[in-house]
Design a protein around this nucleic acid. Structure first.
Lengths: 115, 115
DNA sequence: CATGAGAATAACCATTTGGTTATGGAACTA
DNA sequence: TAGTTCCATAACCAAATGGTTATTCTCATG
């Protein structure tokens, strides 16, 4: 089967890189409860608003987030699809590893059966 | 339930950061077929051996890989557990999103039932 | 129109990242 | 012992990252 490496690599790069920062994961966790404005997202963090805007840009480049317009506010919504791709990569990988473990198990069993 | 944010954050940082590079994902894909020496891992890449050693160090710091000793060779093996943690984070997240979608669906259904 | 709130952008800075070449050490091999 | 293979380490470099402050833009409202 060997799916590993399929899918858009640059997209995966951006997704995993976006997830590699605790602030950004916290932002996503907040957004899982519903959309929020930039200021609302910034409030819990000991960090300036421009810093949060930068993090949002990283999340947006990864496609993990999209922005709307509501008067002066720019509500941020979560976007599920890139997560699905990242998840697929990891799942494929784990599936292959498990298959290998099973092969190793049956090999060991075979060696034990006919010593 | 709200599991998001549990688990060792620094560990997650390292794991996602390690996965954010296509060379390192390719190395993991190669290692899924079985352990390999540094030179074997380096061969497919248009990149120097020290560069691969650096990538391996990143993977090792993330706990995604461990190294053995076999004479002059330093065989590299894959380590599945950190992947499981990364996977758990993503899965938790997607689960929460899906729950929200379901809530939204039933809200819409309710609005349609009594207009 | 003046003010103020929400958010983006610019300019700057320190640190990290991903690569290089050069060198050195450890273990096999002739 | 001398050479060779495998790998790590050091020193260096350019670019990216994650933060800052200062400024600007947009929109709503007094």
């Amino acid at each position: 089967m060997e799916l590993l490496g399929y899918g858009n690599p640059a997209r995966l790069d951006a997704t995993f890189a976006a997830l590699a920062d605790p602030t950004r994961r916290a932002i996503l966790a907040r957004l899982a409860q519903g959309e929020a404005s930039v200021t609302e997202l910034a409030r819990p963090f000991a960090m300036s608003q421009p810093a949060i805007s930068k993090h949002l840009k990283v999340l947006e480049r990864a496609g993990l987030v999209s922005r709307g317009k509501d008067q002066q506010r720019r509500p941020v919504r979560v976007q599920a699809q890139p997560l699905a791709e990242a998840n697929a990569w990891i799942e494929d990988y784990r599936r292959i590893l498990e298959a290998n473990y099973r092969r190793l198990d049956s090999l060991l069993a075979e060696l034990q059966a006919k010593p």
